[in-house]
C-alpha cells in the first residue's frame, strides 16, 4: 500500500524547523535542566561536529550520491592528527585537512572516472581508510605532552563563545556561499536534479562530482579534528557512528536522497535537531538502548514527509 505522507505545499525545511521547535518544547517540559546554559553549550558542541560532517555529506547527497566513507575519514584524521601534531606543531592542522580533501578527491575519482555507484565506491574506500587508521595505530593515541596548547585552540573560547561554534559557523558560511553563489554549487544542484540534462547542456559532470566528494572529505576532516581535540585523543573507531549521523542530519533537514533538492541550510537545521534529540533523550532519562528506536523512527518519518516518493517507480 502506498501512503501519501508528504504534506502538500509545505517546504521540507519548514517541517524540519517545526520539528526543531517541537523537540525543544518537549524536552524543556520533560526536564527544565534541558534549557540550562550549560546544557545548551553541550548541545552546540555536539552540533558543531554533526554540522561539519553533515555539510560535507549534503554536497554529495545533493548530486544524488552518498558518501559512506566520512566516518573512516574522521577516524583516520584523528589518528594522524595525534601522530603528527607532536612533530609538526600547528602544521598538523593543514596536513590532516589535506588528508581529508585527498580522501574525498579519491572517492570522487572512483565514482566519476571508473563509473562506480557512490554507494559501492565509498563502501570500499571506507574499509580501506579504516584499515589504514588501524595499521597506523590500533590503540588510542592521546595528545603529546607538548601539544595541549595547540589542541586547545579548538577547545578554547572567546568570552562565552566557544571556538568550536565559531568553526561550525565559519564552515557553514563557506558551504552556504559555495552552494548559493558559485557555479559549482549550482552545478551540484543541476546534476542532482537531472544528470542527463546536465550532460546534454555541456556541464562538466565529472568535475562537479569530484569536487562534491572533495568537499565531503574536507567536512569529515574538520569534524575529525574537532572530535579528537575535544576528546584529547585519536583512535580508529572514533568516527564509527558518524556515517549514519551525517546522513541523518541531511535527511532530517529535508534534503532529498535523490538529489537536487534541499541544501546547506537544511543541514544546519538537521544538525540542530539531531544534536537536541541525542542530548534531550538522555536529559529526560530515556533508556540509552531505547534511544535508537526514536532516532530510527525520526529518520524514517523525516524521509517520508520530506521526500517526494511518487516519482519513484521502484523503491530499491
Amino acid at each position: 500500500m502506498k501512503m501519501k505522507l508528504r504534506i502538500a505545499g509545505i517546504k521540507p525545511i519548514y517541517i524540519s524547523l517545526g520539528m526543531f521547535f517541537l523537540l525543544v518544547a518537549v524536552f524543556t517540559i520533560g526536564d527544565r535542566t534541558f534549557i540550562s546554559l550549560y546544557n545548551a553549550q553541550t548541545i552546540l558542541n555536539a552540533v558543531a561536529i554533526l554540522l561539519a560532517v553533515g555539510l560535507g555529506q549534503v554536497c554529495v547527497i545533493l548530486t544524488g550520491g552518498i558518501d559512506l566513507s566520512v566516518g573512516s575519514i574522521m577516524s583516520l584524521v584523528s589518528v594522524v592528527f595525534m601522530l603528527v601534531i607532536g612533530q609538526l606543531g600547528a602544521w598538523a592542522y593543514p596536513v590532516v585537512m589535506v588528508l581529508g580533501l585527498g580522501a574525498g578527491f579519491l572517492n570522487g575519482l572512483i565514482v566519476s572516472k571508473l563509473r562506480i555507484p557512490s554507494f559501492i565506491a565509498t563502501l570500499g574506500t571506507q574499509g580501506i581508510l579504516i584499515s589504514v587508521a588501524y595499521l597506523l595505530s590500533a590503540s588510542p593515541l592521546s595528545v603529546p605532552e607538548n601539544s595541549y596548547g595547540l589542541v586547545d585552540i579548538i577547545n578554547g573560547s572567546i568570552g562565552p563563545v566557544k571556538n568550536v561554534w565559531i568553526i561550525g559557523l565559519v564552515l557553514f558560511a563557506g558551504f552556504f556561499a559555495m552552494q548559493a553563489y558559485t557555479r559549482l554549487g549550482r552545478g551540484i544542484m543541476y546534476i542532482g536534479a537531472n544528470e542527463r540534462m546536465s550532460y546534454l547542456s555541456g556541464l562538466d559532470i565529472d568535475r562537479i562530482r569530484i569536487l562534491a566528494f572533495t568537499f565531503s572529505g574536507f567536512g569529515a576532516a574538520v569534524a575529525g579534528i574537532i572530535l579528537s581535540a575535544t576528546l584529547y585523543s585519536g583512535y580508529p573507531s572514533i568516527g564509527g557512528t558518524y556515517v549514519l549521523n551525517s546522513i541523518a542530519v541531511v535527511v532530517v533537514g529535508g534534503t532529498a536522497m535523490t538529489g537536487g533538492a534541499g541544501g546547506v541550510l537544511n543541514t544546519l537545521i538537521g544538525s540542530l535537531i539531531m544534536g537536541i534529540l541525542n542530548n534531550g533523550m538522555t536529559v529526560i532519562g530515556i533508556d540509552v538502548y531505547a534511544q535508537q528506536v526514536f532516532l530510527g523512527v525520526l529518520i524514517i518519518v523525516a524521509v517520508a514527509v520530506t521526500f517526494d516518493r511518487r516519482k519513484l517507480a521502484i523503491i530499491k
Binding site: M189, Y190, A193, N194, M197, L200
Partner: peptide, 13 residues
Amino acid sequence: RNDGLATSLDVMS
C-alpha cells in the same frame, strides 16, 4: 522533462 529541464529546479536556474 528528462533531457531539457531540471523540472525540480526553478525557472531561473
